[in-house]
């Protein structure tokens, strides 16, 4: 039908609701995660360059600016992980017969539990 009114595009839509802001912050944490992957790849590359190159690279990562970057990346990674596990009960509900496991329990069964198990196996494999 002609004569309908179409609202203009809202470019600042993400400022309209706290939930939109939380979404954008979470998306932004991915940038830090991707950045840290680059650091990881560079670390591997320095290993390829020999012991001196590796030591030099590790020393550089210990400067105050890098330390600040590590902290920011860690906060971003923790926030990303916590919100990921927070979404697990919605995306992967667990049913016992007619009963659906409550959110916090499902987070442990489907999220934190398997993650801690895999992490423990890796730690055991590395330090054994």
């Amino acid at each position: 039908m002609s004569g309908q009114y179409h609202r203009p595009h809202r470019w600042a839509w993400w400022t309209e609701r706290p939930g939109y802001m939380r979404f954008m912050v979470r998306e932004l944490t991915s940038v830090f995660m991707a950045g840290y992957l680059v650091v990881f790849v560079m670390t591997l590359a320095s290993v390829g360059g020999g012991e001196a190159a590796f030591a030099e690279w590790i020393a550089a990562l210990g400067t105050p600016a890098w330390m600040a970057a590590h902290v920011v990346a860690l906060i971003a990674a923790v926030w990303h992980a916590v919100t990921f596990f927070g979404a697990v009960p919605q995306a992967m509900p667990v049913f016992l017969g007619e009963r659906r496991l409550p959110g916090p329990v499902a987070q442990i069964v489907m999220g934190y539990g398997p993650w801690l198990t895999v992490s423990a196996v890796i730690v055991w494999w590395v330090v054994r």
């Binding site: 609701r17 939930g19 939109y20 979404f23 979404a87 919605q90």
Partner: peptide
């Protein structure tokens, strides 16, 4: 993209 606000505003808790 899983913004999730659809579930927040749903009056029937459909999620």
């Amino acid at each position: 993209t899983f913004v999730g606000e659809c579930s927040v505003v749903c009056p029937k808790h459909v999620d």
